[in-house]
Design a binder for these strands. Structure first.
Length: 261
DNA sequence: ATGGTTGGCGCCCAA
C-alpha cells in the first residue's frame, strides 16, 4: 500500500497538478490538505476520472482536508474530537483495507499558530492536545493507525535549512516541539526520520517568498506518525521534492509512505 | 528589521 500526503494549497489553483499527479504517481490513498473549498465546490471529476473515490471535509476559503483513494475506504469520520465549538475543517479519518490488514488513516491539517504567542498559538497547542488524546484512544483499543498531513511542526533543527530564524515561530517554538515529542513518545514512529536518521537537507515546504525554493531554504513539516503495528510494516518513506520545481507548484510537496500491507 | 509571493475572496486575510 502506497500512501501520499500532499498540501495542495487550493484545489482550484492546483486542479491540473493534482489530476496529473494522481494519474502518473498513482497513490493508493492520497491524503490532501488545504483544499480551500467547500465539499460542493470541489471539482470531483478530476479525481474520479482517474479512478479515485473522493471524500472531502471542506470549508469555504480556508483549510479543508480530503482523501482520494483507489482502494476501499470505510467508516469515514470528519472533525477532530474534543471541542464541539471548533468549526475549522482540519481533520478526517478513514479505514483503508489492504491485502494483509486494515489501517486507520488520520488526515490532518494542524493549525499554523502564528503569530505566537497569541490566540492562534493557543488554538494550535490545544489542537495538538486533542490530537494526542485521539492517538491515546486508538493505542488503547489497539487500532492500527497512522496520522499524516501538514503538521506545521519543524521537529528538530536538522529539519530546517536556517533553523535559527524559526526558533520564535509557532512551527518550532519550545512548546510546539514539546507537544510533538509528547505525541511521538506515546510510542509512535516518525516515518521519514526513522528511514533517514541524521540526514539534514530534506524538506517538504518552501515559502513562495524571497526565492526560498531557489535557495533551498526549506523546512520539513509534512509527516507520518505510525502506530507500532503499522511501523513494523513500513518499507519506505520518501519526499517527492521535484514537484516543487514544476509549473504553478504548491508550496508543499508530497511525502510518500510505503507499507507491506 | 523588512519584505518578499501565492490563493481565495471581495475591497484584506491566511500562510
Amino acid at each position: 500500500m502506497r500512501i501520499a500526503t500532499f498540501n495542495i494549497n487550493g484545489v482550484k489553483a492546483r486542479a491540473q497538478t493534482l489530476q496529473s499527479w494522481l494519474r502518473e504517481d498513482a497513490p493508493d490513498v492520497a491524503v490532501l490538505q488545504e483544499i480551500k473549498s467547500t465539499d460542493g465546490a470541489f471539482p470531483r471529476d478530476l479525481v474520479e476520472d482517474e479512478g479515485y473515490t473522493l471524500h472531502t471535509h471542506g470549508q469555504k476559503g480556508f483549510n479543508g482536508v480530503a482523501f482520494a483513494a483507489k482502494i476501499p475506504l470505510e467508516d469515514i469520520t470528519r472533525g477532530l474530537p474534543g471541542d464541539d465549538a471548533d468549526e475549522q475543517a482540519r481533520y478526517i479519518e478513514a479505514t483503508a483495507i489492504g491485502e494483509a490488514g486494515a489501517v486507520r488513516i488520520c488526515g490532518l491539517y494542524l493549525p499554523n499558530g502564528n503569530p505566537a504567542p497569541g490566540p492562534k498559538y493557543d488554538y494550535k497547542l490545544a489542537w495538538m492536545e486533542r490530537l494526542e488524546t485521539r492517538a491515546r484512544a486508538m493505542l488503547a483499543e489497539e487500532t492500527p493507525f497512522l496520522m499524516t498531513g501538514d503538521f506545521n511542526v519543524i521537529p528538530q533543527d536538522e529539519d530546517a535549512a536556517a533553523p535559527a530564524k524559526w526558533h520564535d515561530d509557532a512551527l518550532a517554538r519550545p512548546e510546539t516541539r514539546a507537544a510533538w515529542r509528547r505525541l511521538c513518545n506515546l510510542g509512535l514512529t516518525e516515518a521519514f526520520r526513522t528511514r533517514h536518521p541524521g540526514q539534514p537537507g530534506h524538506y517538504s515546504f518552501w515559502d513562495y517568498q524571497a526565492g526560498a525554493w531557489d535557495r533551498n531554504d526549506g523546512i520539513r513539516i509534512d509527516h507520518f506518525l505510525l502506530s507500532p503495528w503499522v511501523a513494523d510494516r513500513m518499507t519506505d518513506c520518501t519526499i517527492q521534492t521535484e514537484m516543487r520545481g514544476r509549473e504553478k507548484p504548491s508550496d508543499h510537496v508530497p511525502v510518500w509512505l510505503d507499507l507491506d500491507l
